[in-house]
Design a protein around this nucleic acid. Structure first.
Lengths: 150, 150
DNA sequence: CTAGATGCAAAAAGTTTGCATAAGA
DNA sequence: TCTTATGCAAACTTTTTGCATCTAG
């Protein structure tokens, strides 16, 4: 998988070791695209899928490292825990729609923000590295039956 | 202040009592426009400005109530705590630029997203109530001197 | 071999809750 | 009056940290 190679390269460049635990964490994200995993989710998935136990502290430390390296994007949906997903190229153009009734998160792609970022640099001198756009509202299902989504 | 009247009306409509503590919390937000206050910030500000002690639990409960009533908007900058600001009309068109070097948050106004919300409703059946747009990057100051902003 | 990584348990930090007391309406 | 709000402390949840042990390079 080409994605893993990219991650390994970044780790090596920073002289971070490639350990079984780090490998498992990255693979877990790779195997669950489009999901927004919390640290506990990752630990649980490793346990149930690879049948290996990884300490939660290690998961947190690994996630933080991968986040610093730009491999994981951190997202916060207001449910009290940080969630993460692989920071692929498309991430920059993919946003989230959070239903305020049922909590479901849908994705949505739109490259509208690119020229805006150029203007921000020109007008504000702020060099955009990443962005996060969330829409809060009522999803189709909740809007239809008035309350209890999926 | 016309803003306070609006808040009082909303409280009364929900048959919530107007207490000194709630008044203090609302006034604190009103007196600090454009700041992104955490619960502890609010408690500290009330203590230092009004010279009154309000329990932290009360601050949390009040903030949550005001958030439910649509009076406060919750924001998360990834620093581990929720922050809030008065949900004025312009909020819908005001976004945040978070510097990943110095952590400073700048604001920025742009109504670009309005037509996008119309398209989301048409295409996805998702009825947008609010949105949150954050740009992460390097602010002018940090870009200039290579590291240590304000 | 050795700097860096892991695991565990303890500690932090932020937020919520139970309950007795206080006070708006 | 009587329901609702407050304050305190305890509980809870998520995340971080110290330290002994282990291991990738």
């Amino acid at each position: 998988m080409v994605q893993l190679a990219r991650v390994y390269r970044k780790l090596e460049q920073g002289s971070f070791r490639i350990t079984p635990q780090r490998d498992l964490v990255v693979r877990t994200f790779a195997n669950h695209p489009g999901e927004h995993l919390s640290a506990e989710d990752v630990q649980r998935l490793i346990q149930s899928e690879a049948r290996v136990a990884v300490g939660l502290a290690t998961v947190y430390r690994t996630i933080e490292l991968l986040h610093q390296l730009g491999i994981l994007q951190r997202i916060n949906f207001g449910d009290g825990r940080s969630r993460y997903e692989l920071n692929q190229e498309e991430v920059h153009r993919h946003h989230h729609m959070v239903c305020i009734r049922c909590g479901q998160v849908e994705e949505f792609t739109e490259d509208l923000l690119d020229d805006l970022e150029g203007r921000i640099l020109a007008e504000k001198g702020f060099q955009v590295v990443d962005h996060e756009l969330k829409f809060y509202g009522i999803c189709r299902l909740c809007g239809r039956n008035g309350g209890d989504g999926p």
